[in-house]
Structure formats: C-alpha cells, structure tokens
Design a binder for these strands. Structure first.
Lengths: 367, 367
DNA sequence: CGCTCCCATGTAAACGATTACATTCACTTT
DNA sequence: AAAGTGAATGTAATCGTTTACATGGGAGCG
C-alpha cells in the first residue's frame, strides 16, 4: 500500500512492455497484468514466497524479500483481488447502509467512514435503501453472497427486520455496527450521540432564557432518535418545572418541508409558544422560513433551535442555535469499531460521542 | 449480462424461502454456503448446466431449468462473486470518483447513479479523493487491479493526470465516463450541462433587470466548469453591451466560506455592483450572509444569484434565484452511459442536459 | 558426532465459479 | 441408408491467489 505510487508508474510501463493481447475482443489492445507467477520467476523464488513477502514480510529472509519487492516493482504486480478473495474468504470491502443518500446529513459521516476504512485498506460500498424493500432484499443477498466483510448500518434496523424489531433478521454472519440510529435488541456495537442528554440540554437552555412555552417539532414516530430526543425534551421541561403541553408537540420527519408545515400549524395556534425546539436543522430552517414570511421576526418574536449543526446552520438567516453532532468523528468511530471486529479484536458495545450546544442568533432571551 | 437482474431476484426469493434453514442456531459454527456443486447434485445435472441455467436460461431445456431453479431455492445457493469474477473477469462493480464527498452538491447525483446501477445489477464503490494524491494513487491501483468494471469520474481529470492534461493518464483499460466536469482531451463520454449557456442566460437575466454593474464570483481557476461559466458571463455582458470590468471578478472556490470572503471584498470596494452572480449556491448563501450582516438588504440594495439549485437554495433567506442543474438525471445519464459501454453497446460521446433558470427572491430589478 | 529443532522455502491442493471442447442423440437431408 | 445438423448436456481446464504440508540445511546441544 505504501509503495502504490511508485508501483503504479512501473505497472503502466510493464504493461506496455508485455503488450500481450488478451482474448477479449479482437482488435482490442488489452494488456495482460502481471501475475504472482511472473514475480516469482523474476525474483527466482516460488509463488508462496512472494505471497509471504507481501503478507508476512518477517517470515522471509531479507535477501529474498528484497528480490521479491524488486520484481514487484519491475513488473508492477498488483495482486488480483478476486483470486485473493476466493481463496482467503476476505474481500476488504465494507457495506454502508443508508436510509437516504440524498440527505445532506450523511455526507460528512460518510467521509469519516471512508477515510478510516481507506487508511485500514478497506473499500466502501454504499447502499442507499431509499425506503425500498426490494433494494433491501437485494443488498441482503449481496451481503450474504460474501461481497463484503462487514457492514455499517445507519438505517436503524437489521436486514429483514422492521424498525421495531419485528421479523427475523437476515443471518449474514458478518460483523455489523449500528451508527447514529441505535438498533434496539441487536447484539452489535452501537455508535451514537446521547440524544436524550442533548435534547434535555437544549430544552434547559431555552428555559434558562425565560421561555415557558417551548414547542417541540418531532422526528418520525417510529424513530429511535425521536424517542430519545423526546424524552430529553420532557426531562428538560421537568427540570425547570415547566408543564408539558401535548398541544405544543408538532409532527415532523426531519425534512425541510415538514418544518415549514410545522410552522403553519404553529401560526394557526391561538396561543403561540415563545420558543420552538426542532429536532433537525432542516426542519428549523423550514420553520423559520414560514414564520418569517408570516411576518414574525426570529428571534425577536419567537426563538427557534435546531439539531445536528449541518453546514447550512451557520449560514442560515438567522444563524441557527443548535446541537452539534460530531459527524465525521461518528463515521470514524463506526469504521474503526468495525475494523476492530473484522480483525478479531474486541470492540466496545457502545460508544457515545459528545455533542455541543452551539449558540448562534436564532434563540434569544424572552423579553 | 442481461440476465443478471433476474438472477438477483431469484437469489433473493431463494434466500427468503430457505431463510429459516440457513439461520444459525446459537452457539453453532459457521454454516457453509451452498456451492454450485451442491445445486448440481440436487438437480441431477452438471455444474455447467447450473451455470448456464443462470446465465443463459434459453440454452437449457425447460425441465432441467426447472430442476435447477428448484435446487437453487432449496439450497439457498448464491453464486460466489469472487469465483465468478476470477474466472469471468467481471466484477459488476463501478467506481465513482468524487473530489469531495462532503460536498452536498454530489449527494443527489450519487443517488441518480446508484439507482441506475442498481437496476442494471451493478454495485457502486465510492472513492473520495479529498485532494490527496495518495488516495488517488491508491484508487488507481485499486482500479488497475480489476476490482471494478468501469468508473464514473466527477473529479475533472484522469488518474495520473492533472486537470490541465499534464502527465500520463493511467492505463486502466476499462470504460470511463466523465460527469459534470468534462475532461478535455480524454476520449471518453462526457455528461454535463451547458455551463456556458447557463451562465450567459443568468447574466442576461440580471442585465435585463437593469443591472449594469454585475459582479462575478468565480470557481477555482483551474476548473473547467469555471472556464465555461466565465465565458458565459462575458458573453452575457457582451450581449447587453455591458463593459467587462476585471475588478468585478472575485475569486471563489464554490464553498460557503469563499462566498463570505467575496462579500468582504465587495463591501470594501469603492463602487459597489448592483448585482452579483455567484457560480455556486453555497457561495451565494455565504455572500448574502456577509452582505446582510453589513446592513445591506438583498435584493433591495443588491441582487444575488446562485448556481446549482441545491436543496437549501429554496429555503435560504431570501430564497435564491439560481440555475437548476438536474442532478439526479445527470447521475442517471452517466450511469446508463457507462452500462452501455460495459455491455458493449455504443454510447454517445457527449450528453448535455438542460438547465433551468429558477427565479426566486434574491434578485430584483434595479430601482 | 548424531540428534533435534527451527527457519526459509518449495510443492501442490484448495477456493468456486465459467466455458472451450467433447459427447450424445434425435432429426433432417441427400 | 449414410451423412450432416444442431440442441442439450457433460468433462475438465482455467482464472490467480493463499496456505497446509513437505523438505532441506544449519544451529544448538549433549
């Protein structure tokens, strides 16, 4: 892996030199790649020694090792992954299962995952479930076929199971890690933030600024994150001896549109809250937009808080007070936990990363 | 090739049916997956017939085919991808090369790619180059090793080459497609929008509203998109007989921060423009923020236009007038073009998708 | 000196599919 | 009736590694 740049250059040259036609399509100038045989012959050792020089360098003599590396450089040899995988039953590939690839919340998490996997020599295959059971079945089969060594699940449930744990989980026999949305009942490592504590903290922050009527825009009702955040919201109210008013709980599903929708509900209420806690930034941005176009000023007339701290939270008008999720770190933690499992090391059952309260301009003290 | 989708389906159905049987009892060892041998024995045919029943069903007698499918369902057989790939030199995997996975612009494109590949039975591997030559070399080797059948390049250059075409492109010998950012000089299909026409149209739109001093916030100077959009900007000015003023061209790199930075430059200018054309929505949003915090009203005091029409363009304050890029369709077009190549069909050398001028609230007529 | 032990290496058997080539058999065709 | 044709299937080589097992030789030890 370290020598890859140099190898690459040499490889091209070697390919040109060999220039041997492959029997694919006539007239196609496909050159054949060097095989382990070629390296072995050139280094005057057996294929076994070449393989060992690569996998366990300390088990071959320094002289042989040097000759092998030399031959590898000369031929530009790159091991054939299919052959390697066929024999060793390892693919060095990880599946990342997402509920929705188009959701901007995931992109930075993906990057955290990708970079960690990359450093450990693993590739990343992405599956965007997109709410389709058909795709889910496909990827279950895909996984079962042994195309990946492990998987990171961001979708809140196992293959073949619904979110509430109904149904029999597909038996994949590979290491799994749940990221962000914990999978209740599954005996796999869970990487997440403390959603409850974060929601409680935000609620208390709003209360501490004098707000007594604090609305809550929820996530989808079946969502584990939602349950936790809702609990935190109620705990926050209780800590400040504020009454819980079900009329102040508005349905949402984390999207911009549902936030805008919640804004409409809010405007229609006879007695308006003075602060709104949205459980996603997208909803907060949608909500602010609705409120402003109705002539309300944020935060002067009404405070709005978000959750996630996506890129646009800081650029929104007004800049959003929100809960920061360490998305990149979440991805990294999930990936390195999975790698631990893949390499037979112990891994913690649960990792909870710290969130931060980000105070910007969309929340103000009650006048 | 054509049968792959159907094959997948069958495996899935088979999986479902024998789901119970394959599940491990607690404490049980690893259950061995069924091989083609097992299916052949059960169906009382040779392995060749099983293979043919799957790949070319019409070359097998209906009776044998039925017995084979039956046996597949009974055993829950799923072909081993490594073995298949080793022998047939096909992986049914496509590499998607991105300059920056965390950039929200790409997520919807990825989805378009993913769904199209999925429908054709291909999987998607993502490589986030992240500006690192090391990663680039790695993925070049990865590709050269034959882990993918083809690649979609969104990064504007070939492996081993810089953006301006310097250096020898890696000799990968697999079908490639360039998406969004055309690769000049490369003899591969290019899927893109007409950046020049779109930029010209937006510039003319601003001019038609009476603006005579129209600033331009650019992309990175080495970027092909940037060159095209800049040409369009100048053409738009010329069409309205407006002078080109280099002082009104501000450097940017498509990010939020560079837009905010451009705003600072703008505020410092003695003679301010009345409209600003930002070549990305992110920059427009960053710019608006800077302008507003300096007390300027958008669009009353200054108009701001964007490019891309990302999700937040509509939710921004004020909602952004911008150029809509059909991102999902771009992804789909690139993927299906690549699939055509992979399956030996002809593919167009260049596909240009239509853009739309989206008129919202951030641009107004000059008072 | 003879015996063990271990290290470095080689030999060759997997891994699980695809597919070129061979074979069989039922039908035409001449 | 002999030969030719083509469809259905089987046989076995092949893809390029990894790795269990075998081997040979040098060091250590009594």
């Amino acid at each position: 892996m370290v020598a890859s740049v140099k190898q690459e250059r040499l490889w091209e040259r070697a390919m040109d030199e060999i220039g041997q036609k492959r029997r694919l399509r006539p007239g196609d100038g496909q050159a054949r790649a060097a095989r382990i045989q070629d390296v072995a012959r050139l280094a005057d050792v057996s294929t076994a020694t070449v393989s060992r020089a690569l996998a366990t360098p300390d088990r071959v003599s320094p002289e042989a090792r040097a000759r092998v590396f030399d031959a590898i450089a000369k031929t530009g040899y790159v091991p054939n992954p299919a052959a390697r995988s066929l024999r060793s039953q390892k693919t060095y590939m990880v599946l990342v299962v997402l509920p929705d690839l188009a959701n901007t919340f995931f992109s930075r998490i993906l990057r955290g995952i990708e970079e960690t996997l990359f450093d450990a020599g693993y590739g990343m295959i992405i599956s965007d479930l997109d709410g389709s059971p058909e795709k889910e079945a496909h990827f279950a089969a895909f996984t079962a076929a042994g195309r990946v060594d492990g998987a990171i699940l961001l979708n809140g449930h196992l293959f073949g199971q619904s979110r509430d744990g109904k149904g029999t989980p597909a038996n994949l026999n590979i290491p799994l890690v749940a990221l962000c949305e914990a999978i209740p009942g599954a005996d796999i490592p869970q990487i997440e933030i403390d959603n409850r504590a974060a929601a409680r903290r935000m609620t208390q922050h709003l209360a501490s600024l004098g707000h007594r009527r604090i609305a809550y825009v929820s996530g989808p009702p079946e969502n584990v994150l939602e349950h936790e955040r809702f609990k935190g919201y109620r705990e926050g109210l209780r800590a400040w001896d504020l009454p819980f008013d079900p009329a102040l709980v508005l349905p949402g599903d984390y999207t911009l549109d549902s936030g805008a929708q919640a804004g409409q509900f809010l405007l229609a209420k006879p007695e308006r809250p003075t602060a709104v806690f949205c459980t996603s930034d997208e909803m907060a941005i949608g909500l602010v937009r609705t409120l402003r176009s109705a002539g309300l000023r944020v935060p002067d007339d009404i405070s709005v808080a978000g959750f996630d701290d996506i890129e646009f939270a800081a650029a929104a008008q007004p800049a959003l007070t929100t809960v920061h999720q360490p998305r990149r770190e979440l991805g990294q933690a999930a990936a390195s936990t999975l790698i631990d499992l893949l390499q037979g090391r112990m891994a913690p059952k649960r990792i909870r990363l710290k969130t931060d309260l980000i105070i910007r301009d969309s929340v103000a003290a009650l006048r």
